[in-house]
Amino acid sequence: MLTVCMSSFTQGYETLESEYRSNGSLMHGLLERPKQSLFEFSAVIYSGREEIAYGIVVEETGYVISKASEVIEADDLKMRIGATQYEPVQIVATDSAWDVCLLKTKATGLKVAHFADDSQVDQGTWVVTNGATTRRERWPQLGIISANAREIRAEGGAVLGIEINEGKSGLEIGEVPEKSGAYRAGLRKGDKIIKIADKKISKRDDVADIMKDRRVGEKISVVYLRNGKQVRVEVELMGRADTFGAQQSRNDTMSGDYSKRRSGFPRVLQHDVQGNRVTVGGPLLDLEGRCIGMNIARANRAESFAIPLEELRDVISRLLTQAMQNKADATDAPR
């Protein structure tokens, strides 16, 4: 105590050494159980040699969930679970509403995530997520539940992903970004829109009315006219900012490397763990090392989001069912 006081008088301030800070090595030393969990059932996802995200093991036969938007465009996917590296890795199913994808690699006897009973955690409760990775160790990052669990509406609303021009002969589609739901459904520049969600469309305001209060991941039917033929497709909605891009706000510029997709989630837990864009996709753990959710977005400097356990269970079972279905379809298909 005395030395600290002395130094404060001579230097004008006192500083806490880094190992004593809230995410210093001495605090991490108290997190043996979460560290063990990260090592056993959280995967590190690589594109080639670059670490791009984390994941959670959901089936012992090599199924792992991760953050879709960080993984989906990457090539040469690899995973590390425990001390073992696995490759190749395939994306076998995707849930775009929650931005979760299911990865598969050839493995047996993996340890599946140890889930807690529920995610009913009060604000102020300690939580742990993935930190840095070394060959032998997984570093944890410590934080707390920091706000009400809630829906995060898509930045700028949910959109089809088309520009619409009002012409003499009706509504014509302008630019369609390649990553939009509209592009994936087959809509192209020059197509004429006849109906959206089974309603006839004659002006741009009609579209705005239909799109109001829609959610990311929702599917909406679009009837369009091309070369004299009417075609009906189902378009999956995405967030406006995720489709058309968004300008960086002042808060964004002070936030460092945040997640590309950080809005449009049906319900999240908010926590204050100091991660970055890469440390997302793994489990949100309690001090016992039990999984209470999936760390899904680094929103900004002060806010991170996790999918609550209850919703996560549904997402996992849907993705596994979808993967089995896809596999069955592939087997049935004539060669």
């Binding site: 301030y13 500083t15 806490l16 809230s22 706000a147 009400n148 900004n300 002060a302 806010e303």
Partner: peptide, 30 residues
């Protein structure tokens, strides 16, 4: 309103006469 004021936990990491520094992360609006 749905979120409420966000809470962040940390330690006082630097103490000077007219400034405190903590590792509770702040952002614009705080």
């Amino acid at each position: 309103k749905d979120r409420g004021a966000g809470v962040r936990l940390g330690r006082l990491v630097k103490v000077a006469d007219s400034t405190l520094q903590s590792d509770c992360t702040l952002i614009g609006g705080d």
